[in-house]
Computed example of a mutant assay.
Amino acid sequence: MGITTISSRDFNQDTSGAKKASKGGPVIITDRGKPSHVLLSIEEYQRLTGSLPSIVELLAMPGANDIEFEPQPARINTKPADLS
């Protein structure tokens, strides 16, 4: 995994290049020669933070429509209200 360093100006001019570079490792973005931001792939970010994708992210995944999902109806035992 390599680290790429680019200036904020280069980042603004070639965002797609920075995104491609982030697949191979972190991209450090500099401002006036000093590191100011780090661009990571979402997979690397999730690995570092230990976070799992949300249900919304999972449902938005390509191919999610092909997954069969039939939840069982909820069974809630209730008592009638005592209105006396």
Rank of each mutant, 00 (worst) to 15 (best):
F11T: 00
P80D: 01
L39E: 09
H37E: 08
L48G: 14
G33Y: 12
E43G: 09
N65I: 14
V27Q: 02
N77W: 12
P73W: 14
L58A: 07
R9V: 08
I3Y: 15
A81Q: 07
K20V: 05
G50D: 14
D31R: 15
T15L: 14
A18T: 03
I3H: 01
P53Y: 14
T49A: 08
L52H: 12
G63C: 08
A18H: 10
D31M: 12
K19F: 07
L59F: 05
N77S: 06
L58M: 07
T30W: 07
E57I: 04
I67F: 06
S84L: 11
P26I: 13
A74D: 04
L52M: 09
S84N: 02
E57T: 05
I28K: 00
I76V: 09
E43M: 11
A18P: 04
L40K: 13
N77F: 05
D82L: 09
K23E: 01
Q72E: 10
N65Y: 12
G17A: 11
D10Q: 13
D66T: 06
S22K: 09
L40R: 13
G25D: 02
I28V: 15
I42F: 06
I67T: 00
A81I: 06
L59Y: 06
V38D: 12
T30V: 11
G24R: 06
S16F: 13
D31C: 14
V56H: 11
S36T: 07
I42D: 07
D31A: 15
M61L: 12
V27R: 00
E43Y: 00
P62V: 02
K34E: 01
T15M: 15
G63W: 10
V27S: 07
N12L: 11
I76E: 11
T49R: 05
G50I: 07
I76P: 01
R75I: 11
G63A: 04
I29G: 01
A18W: 03
D82T: 02
S54K: 00
P62F: 02
S84M: 10
P53F: 05
G24P: 00
A74P: 09
I3M: 07
L48D: 08
D14V: 09
L52K: 13
N77G: 10
G25W: 06
L59A: 08
N12V: 06
T15P: 07
D10A: 03
D66I: 10
R32D: 05
M1L: 08
T4Y: 09
G17I: 04
E70T: 10
R9C: 02
I67H: 01
P73Y: 03
A64K: 01
T30I: 14
I6S: 00
E68V: 12
S51P: 02
A64H: 05
M1G: 15
L52C: 11
G50Y: 08
Q46R: 03
E43C: 00
Y45W: 09
G50R: 06
L48R: 08
I6P: 02
D14G: 05
S8D: 09
T30Q: 09
L40M: 06
G63V: 03
I67D: 07
K23I: 11
I55L: 12
D82A: 02
L39Y: 08
L52P: 05
I42E: 04
I67Y: 04
K19T: 03
L48H: 11
R32A: 15
L52I: 15
E43K: 04
M1A: 08
E44G: 12
K79D: 05
T5K: 10
Q13S: 07
P35R: 05
I6D: 05
L83C: 01
K20C: 09
D31T: 04
